[in-house]
Design a protein around this nucleic acid. Structure first.
Length: 139
DNA sequence: GCCAACGTTGGC
DNA sequence: GCCAACGTTGGC
């Protein structure tokens, strides 16, 4: 089991959309970056992903679970990129902000901080647990 | 294969 | 709105 972080602009696709129907898997598509794509291809069914809002929010607001491995992205005419399917897993009653992640020295090596433009990234188990604690969840 | 020019993302 | 960081494109 591996852990990840998925970024989205809430204006495009928000946690409100994602968590509206908790039993409905939704395609995570539109990724147009090869590094991000390579991470998508490594995801397995059951892996968990933090759901991060960029833009004016800049915080982790939920957790989703991968329900389908990578398949061709229907929105990509070049056929180079892939999608996965994700489904609601849990809410964060206490969103974990980018600011608080930056303040935690144990999280200083997160790709979220090192590569701000990357939209799909792995999260090590240790960091996953730390952020779970910060969000007061146990995903 | 290099690199200049340009485009995009996302934090500030 | 700006700009740093990164990615892509195309001329050579």
């Amino acid at each position: 089991m591996n852990y990840w972080l998925l970024k989205t602009e809430p204006e495009e696709w928000s946690w409100q959309h994602q968590s509206k129907n908790k039993k409905l898997p939704v395609a995570w598509d539109g990724v147009r970056n090869f590094q991000a794509r390579n991470f998508l291809q490594k995801m397995n069914v059951g892996d968990l992903c933090f759901f991060y809002h960029t833009g004016s929010e800049k915080q982790i607001v939920g957790v989703v679970r991968v329900t389908k491995r990578a398949f061709p992205d229907k929105t990509d005419k070049t056929k180079k990129f892939v999608s996965i399917m994700v489904q609601f897993h849990s809410d964060l009653d206490h969103p974990v902000t980018l600011e608080s992640i930056k303040k935690n020295k144990q999280l200083k090596d997160l790709l979220l901080l090192k590569q701000s433009r990357l939209s799909v990234m792995p999260i090590g188990l240790k960091c996953w647990k730390i952020i779970n604690n910060m969000g007061k969840i146990n995903a």
